[in-house]
Structure formats: structure tokens, C-alpha cells
């Protein structure tokens, strides 16, 4: 596995250029182009603010902000996993024609999602400040939580992208599965509305850990719950290792199967 890491390092230029082209192709041809990276979360935020404070009249203070924090984190994960599940097949022409460590493909997709997340912070941070939140030392946890989420997303992406080559159904099932997962993760609701036993169960889900940690740091102004955090890292690392192991095993026949 260390050999593979070394090889990936040699191909870092390629990874970077794949990420860039991923980001650039997304809005290519549209009039506003790259600006959409910012307009999208901004509009999402406005829509949710409007619906939850004007129509549904949720009593939770700064609810739209609460939800936005979770939603950005969720989007990183969901778009990353969804898009990388089919990336090997989608980039079949590359896989068949040139050599490179195949891990680059799912990594570039997740990398693009992470960068998108960072760019949407440009919307989130001013919004926090406008809503009366001031930066605190707890904000320093954000990169760490982001790392945790990235590890988990990469692990699952490696797993799913290699399986999808042999089992194309995964790509379609994943949409429904992610929707279910979304509602099992406390993004649109606070985990406090659940009974303690159910809440305990929900925290087994690593994405709950990620979203809860983001919420603690940015919304509640407290440090993340360390037990939860350590658990998250252990699970994510396990997913990463098993996902990569499977990927390495399956990647030998990619060029023949895509």
C-alpha cells in the first residue's frame, strides 16, 4: 500500500489537473460560468431561509443557518460519492488507453467536492457574521472535521467506484440510498428531537458525527464531542482501508470491463 501512495504522489500533477478540469467543466458553457460555484449555495440558502422562516415558521433560532451548515457538509459527501461511483466507467476511454494509478479518478471527484465546499465557505462565513456569530477558537476544528469527512468520503468512493465497474446497478440504487441516508442524518432536524436511545443509534452513522461536529463548532460554539470524533476517525479509516483494498484488487481488470 505504501508503494501505491508513492505512485499517487508521483501522479499528483495529474490529480490536480483532473480536479481542475472537473471544476471547470461543471459550469462550462453557461453564461455565469465559475460564478455558479457561489451562486448555487447562495440561492439554496435564500430559498431555505424563505421557506423555513416565512412559510413554515420554524422556531429554532437561525434555523436556515443551522441547516445550511449541515447541508454543505452533506453535499460534499453525497456529490462526491454519487459522482465517483460511476467515474471509472465514465472515464473509460482514459482507463483503456493510458496508464495511471486508477485511484486518481475517484480522488479527483472527491477533491473537486472538497474544493467546492471550501468555496462555499465564502458564502457561509459572511452569513455567520451577518447573523451575529463571531469567530471563536472552536472554528479551528473545521479543517479537522473536514479531514474526517474527506477520509470517509474517499473510502466509500473507492469502494463504490470499483464495484460499479462490475455491477452497474449501484449507480442507480445509490440515489435512493443516499436520500434515505440524508434523512437518517441530522441535517434538517436537530438530533435533540430524537429520543436518547434512537439518538445513540443515529450516532453510529459516521456522517452524523461529521454533521454534528460541524454544528457544534459553527452553530453551538462548542468543541466537538471528542468520543464521537474519535469514533468517527476510527470508522472512516476502516472504511478507507477496506475500500482501497477492494479497489486495488478490482482495478486490474478495469480496462477490460469498462
Amino acid at each position: 500500500m505504501f508503494g501505491r501512495i508513492g505512485e499517487l504522489w508521483k501522479y499528483r500533477e495529474m490529480l490536480w489537473s483532473m480536479i481542475l478540469s472537473e471544476l471547470r467543466t461543471r459550469y462550462r458553457g453557461s453564461f455565469l460560468g465559475f460564478l455558479w460555484t457561489f451562486i448555487n449555495p447562495l440561492l439554496t440558502l435564500l430559498v431555505y431561509t424563505f421557506i423555513f422562516s416565512k412559510i413554515m415558521k420554524v422556531t429554532m433560532p437561525h434555523y436556515s443557518l443551522f441547516m445550511f451548515i449541515g447541508l454543505l457538509a452533506w453535499n460534499l459527501f453525497a456529490t462526491g460519492v454519487q459522482s465517483s461511483s460511476s467515474v471509472i466507467v465514465r472515464q473509460g476511454s482514459l482507463v483503456k488507453k493510458i496508464y495511471f494509478p486508477r485511484e486518481i479518478l475517484p480522488l479527483s471527484v472527491v477533491g473537486g467536492s472538497v474544493i467546492n465546499y471550501l468555496l462555499s465557505l465564502v458564502i457561509l462565513v459572511p452569513f455567520l457574521l451577518i447573523s451575529g456569530y463571531r469567530p471563536t477558537v472552536d472554528w479551528l476544528f473545521v479543517p479537522l472535521i473536514l479531514l474526517l469527512e474527506t477520509i470517509f468520503t474517499v473510502g466509500l468512493s473507492l469502494l463504490l467506484s470499483s464495484l460499479t465497474v462490475y455491477l452497474r446497478d449501484i449507480e442507480h440504487m445509490l440515489g435512493i440510498f443516499l436520500m434515505l441516508w440524508f434523512y437518517l442524518t441530522p441535517v434538517v432536524y436537530s438530533i435533540t428531537i430524537l429520543s436518547p436511545r434512537i439518538a445513540q443509534l443515529f450516532k453510529l452513522n459516521p456522517m452524523s458525527d461529521v454533521v454534528l461536529s460541524f454544528q457544534s463548532v459553527l452553530y453551538y460554539h462548542e468543541s466537538p464531542h471528542w468520543k464521537l470524533f474519535v469514533y468517527g476517525f476510527v470508522i472512516s479509516t476502516a472504511v478507507l482501508i477496506s475500500g482501497w483494498w477492494l479497489f486495488v484488487r478490482l482495478n486490474r481488470r478495469f480496462a477490460e470491463e469498462v
Binding site: S17, M18, S21, G29, I98
Partner: peptide
Amino acid sequence: AGFHPDFSGRENVFMNGA
């Protein structure tokens, strides 16, 4: 192989080189 049809030749040189 490795050419992206939507990008210019110049941009593709960079990607292909990578």
C-alpha cells in the same frame, strides 16, 4: 486518449502532459 473535447489544444497539452 486523455484529450478533453471541450478544452482548447493548449489546455489539453497541459492535461495530457500531466
